[in-house]
Amino acid sequence: MPLTRRAALIGAPLFLAGCATQGRLPAPTAATPSIDPRWAAMYGPVEGEPFPVPAVDISEIDPQFLRQEVAYRGAEPAGTLVVDPNRRFLYLVREGNRAIRYGVGVGKQEGFNFQGEATIARKAQWPRWTPTPAMIAREPERYGPYRDGLAGGPTNPLGPRALYLYKDGRDTLYRLHGTTEPWSIGTMVSSGCIRLLNQDIIDLYRRVPTGSRVIVLPAGAAGVA
């Protein structure tokens, strides 16, 4: 299937094994009263987890990157995940020409980004994170101390869930995962993985089974409009 097929989408309210953080910005300001209460509830604290999943301060995030159902007229069947790195969106295609759209953060350099088709071959809750050899070689002082991995938890850069992308039966080392940096959604900051808000990756994790097809459009291509 050509990855540059044009699809029309209209919005409506409703790390590789080594994905990494990029440092923190100053503490966000308090949420303003104008925030839609539906989104405030959607991104509130998540109960019943082994580690805290705090509320997201959505005042620091462009509303277009918050989870919402949209019209979708592409040809992909229901259950397909389509990632548009250019617009920083991930679409979970549904029946009836609809999709759930999530805001994402993508690789900070084009060469760091996976593109093409893959399959979700594994799912993990509170996954372990291990930087890749390339990451350690690139920034040994930063990533070297974690060469043996970091257990799942509130400081783990993969967040509370991870979906592992495989191609032709082999691990691509790219993931769909949560983040410790909610302000980064809608930006190019990761080491190549597709990061979502923690509440969004928990929602997506519940909706997609292993074996689900993922299409990551090429950076710079007009595959999704």
Rank of each mutant, 00 (worst) to 15 (best):
Y205W: 11
G149C: 12
A31Y: 00
W183V: 08
E181G: 07
V93T: 13
G169P: 12
V216P: 01
V70N: 01
A71C: 02
A71M: 12
I194G: 00
P77V: 00
I136T: 07
G220K: 03
I35L: 15
K123G: 13
R142D: 02
P26N: 11
F89W: 15
V224G: 02
W39Y: 14
L150W: 02
E76V: 01
N156Q: 04
T172Q: 13
A12Y: 11
V53R: 02
A225L: 10
E60R: 11
E69A: 07
G223S: 08
A99M: 02
P77N: 13
E141N: 12
A8I: 09
I201L: 04
V70L: 07
G74S: 06
D168P: 04
A8S: 10
A222S: 09
A8Q: 11
R98P: 01
A118Y: 02
G44K: 07
A75M: 02
G79N: 01
F15P: 10
R170T: 14
R73T: 14
D200Y: 01
V106A: 12
A151Q: 09
S190Q: 03
P154Y: 10
M188S: 15
E95W: 00
I35F: 11
R147I: 05
T130I: 12
Y72C: 04
I100F: 12
A55S: 12
I61V: 11
G144I: 07
R73H: 11
A20P: 04
G169S: 09
Y102I: 10
P182H: 02
R138W: 11
I10R: 10
R138G: 03
V53I: 10
P145L: 10
R122Q: 10
D200G: 10
P45E: 10
G169E: 04
L25R: 14
L92E: 02
R142S: 09
L92R: 02
A71F: 11
F51S: 03
I185N: 03
P154A: 15
M135I: 07
F65P: 01
P209I: 00
T119M: 00
G44V: 00
A219H: 10
G103P: 03
P133V: 08
A137W: 03
R138Y: 08
P157K: 05
S191D: 09
G223R: 04
F65E: 05
D57M: 01
P157F: 06
D84W: 03
A30N: 04
L217G: 05
Y91T: 00
W183R: 14
G186R: 03
I215T: 00
T172Y: 06
A151I: 04
L165V: 06
A225I: 01
P182T: 02
Y166P: 10
P85C: 12
I10H: 10
I136C: 00
P52Y: 05
A27M: 03
R87K: 11
R195F: 06
G186T: 07
E117Q: 09
R24L: 15
G116L: 05
V56F: 04
